[in-house]
Design a protein around this nucleic acid. Sequence first.
DNA 1: CCGCATCCTAGTCGATACTG
DNA 2: CAGTATCGACTAGGATGCGG
Lengths: 131, 131
Amino acid sequence: MSQRNTGVTVQVVNAHACPVREVLDRVSGKWSVQILVAAAHGPIRFTELERSIEGISRRMLTLTLRNLERDGLVTRTVHPTVPPRVDYELTPVARELHETLQRLTDWAERNRVYIAEARASYDAEREPEPA
Amino acid sequence: MSQRNTGVTVQVVNAHACPVREVLDRVSGKWSVQILVAAAHGPIRFTELERSIEGISRRMLTLTLRNLERDGLVTRTVHPTVPPRVDYELTPVARELHETLQRLTDWAERNRVYIAEARASYDAEREPEPA
DNA sequence: CCGCATCCTAGTCGATACTG
DNA sequence: CAGTATCGACTAGGATGCGG
């Protein structure tokens, strides 16, 4: 696993509608993944999400939920009661996604120390005198 | 798989240094993943990367490569020849990441139609008259 | 060939205040 | 409770030009 590329037959990864970009667009955004994680254990209310995800604003929670709903990753159920109650729940497709995201998280856990050290040594070499 | 959250014991997913965010910060950015994919088959030169990834600017290629290098995901090898030649290669840690990213891509492929349809019907319900 | 510096725009996100 | 509306800060990223 280290054979050289020829330099002539380098494959174009972004041909027209790259699936890599598609998935990232779905998952990108500061809060999408955390919402998916928080909702993974069953239906959850708006305010519960707001409390679960530290630092999120009402605005961003709403916006991100709308996008996830639009992509068919969460369902929104309004209960016509007073006070109002809205439940959000992952769709089966989103549950699949959550599984693979779990693997990504595992990777992060396994290698967080390695990465932190890599950063530290990289920075150390370039900025010996900070002040 | 659908038991209700209690509303009292909702777990906080963003405790202090959420690993979810850590991995996303590493992978986010418009070009990181595509670079990792393009470099997955072995050492690759700067210009080869530039040609492989359609639409990327010199600036972003350089910046993103620097960040990946900083995080210990790619190595940068300068050959002191003329004209200069610089090879980039994935580290073992990045190869692991690439495998899990592959699963994400697979998910995107499997569900791209579902998502496209979800979007279409969502938009159709909210904007019956575009003009 | 490889890369950095500069300028500038467009999108993203947070704070705040107001509604059904 | 569950949003919406408005503003303003910040930043990622594109364009361009120079340099080793």
